[in-house]
């Protein structure tokens, strides 16, 4: 029996209200996230995009339960996210498979923590690996896999415990362009199959458009929500859509929003580094290419 049937789309509601996060104490405290309110509705795919250091990872880490809010509330299905748990699957930018476990044992890890017995675990893991086209590699060690495959296993592992939400922090950042596109397609497939809510962080505008139902753009640090852009493109989405007028309109809008912030972020850094009078000659378009 396949335990991975579509879940009902009423769970997996991430709600962030007036979140502020400070690192450090008193005068030397750094404000990483400043009054962010946002949400991911059940079954929705939401991306966050913003300049480097604006607090995206911090926001995600609060949802994951690794960082506590300084003020404000963060809940998943009404429960505060005060510590990490298997109800929130996470995929990291760095490869995070356990090198001492085979692919299948990696996928089984979360189920083992839940006390599921050996044979059920193996069965569940194989079902999932089959869905991701990885069954032939179940007995390989992570070391023997390519980067794209490692991240696919990472996604499968995070999904194995049937979490309510999937949190992804630039999971494809380390992959080459071709592999990225394939991974985006696979992720979309898995997401639709599982009807899971996804909160996805990326630097890549195309990636955010291709994957998301909605995109939040964050400001330079301290990070606030600058804009919320719906992506009404029909699904299934194909790479060819990238040349349609609708796509290009969204892309231009996102690009301009991000360029402003990146310029601000760079300006801030330049001021910090004592180069305040320095003329930035890169136009908005140019900076968007940089990030």
């Amino acid at each position: 029996m396949n335990p991975y049937v579509k879940k009902d789309s009423t769970t997996g509601h991430i709600q962030v209200e007036n979140l502020r996060v400070f690192f450090g104490r008193n005068s030397s405290a750094v404000e990483a996230v400043s009054d962010v309110s946002m949400q991911v509705k059940p079954g929705e795919f939401v991306s966050i995009i913003g300049p480097s250091g604006c607090g995206k990872s911090t926001l995600l880490n609060v949802v994951a339960g690794f960082v506590q809010p300084s003020t404000g509330t963060v809940t998943v299905d009404g429960k505060p996210t005060d510590k990490p748990g298997a109800d929130r699957g996470m995929v990291f930018q760095q490869y995070s498979l356990f090198p001492w476990l085979t692919v299948r044992k990696n996928v089984e890890f979360g189920l083992k923590q839940q006390g599921m017995d050996n044979s059920h675990r193996a069965q569940a893991a194989r079902t999932l690996l089959g869905l991701a086209g990885l069954l032939a590699f179940e007995n390989h060690y992570p070391e023997q896999l390519s980067g794209g495959m490692k991240q696919r296993v990472g996604i499968v592992r995070a999904l194995a415990t049937s979490p309510q939400v999937l949190l992804m922090d630039e999971p494809f950042g380390a992959l080459d362009a071709q592999t990225r596109v394939v991974m985006q397609q696979i992720l979309t497939n898995m997401w639709q199959r599982f009807r899971i809510s996804v909160l996805f962080i990326t630097h890549d505008i195309d990636e955010s458009i291709f994957l998301s139902d909605r995109v939040y753009v964050m400001t330079a640090r301290p990070g606030k929500i600058k804009a919320e852009i719906p992506i009404p493109l029909p699904r299934p989405r194909t790479p060819e859509m990238a040349s349609t007028p609708e796509y290009l309109a969204i892309k231009t809008k996102l690009r301009n929003l991000i360029s402003e912030e990146s310029l601000k972020a760079m300006g801030g850094e330049l001021k910090d580094s004592g180069l305040a009078g320095f003329d930035i000659e890169v136009g908005p378009q140019g900076v968007a290419e940089l990030i």
Binding site: A64, G65, F66, P84, G85, A86, R88, G89, M90, F92, Q94, S96, L97, F98, F109, G110, Q113, Q114, R157, A158, T161
Partner: peptide
């Protein structure tokens, strides 16, 4: 130990002993 492995373990529901 790579801290990301510990974080991954926590996310997958491992308790202290696990």
């Amino acid at each position: 130990v790579d801290p990301v492995l510990v974080r991954a373990g926590r996310c997958l529901g491992a308790n202290e002993l696990g």
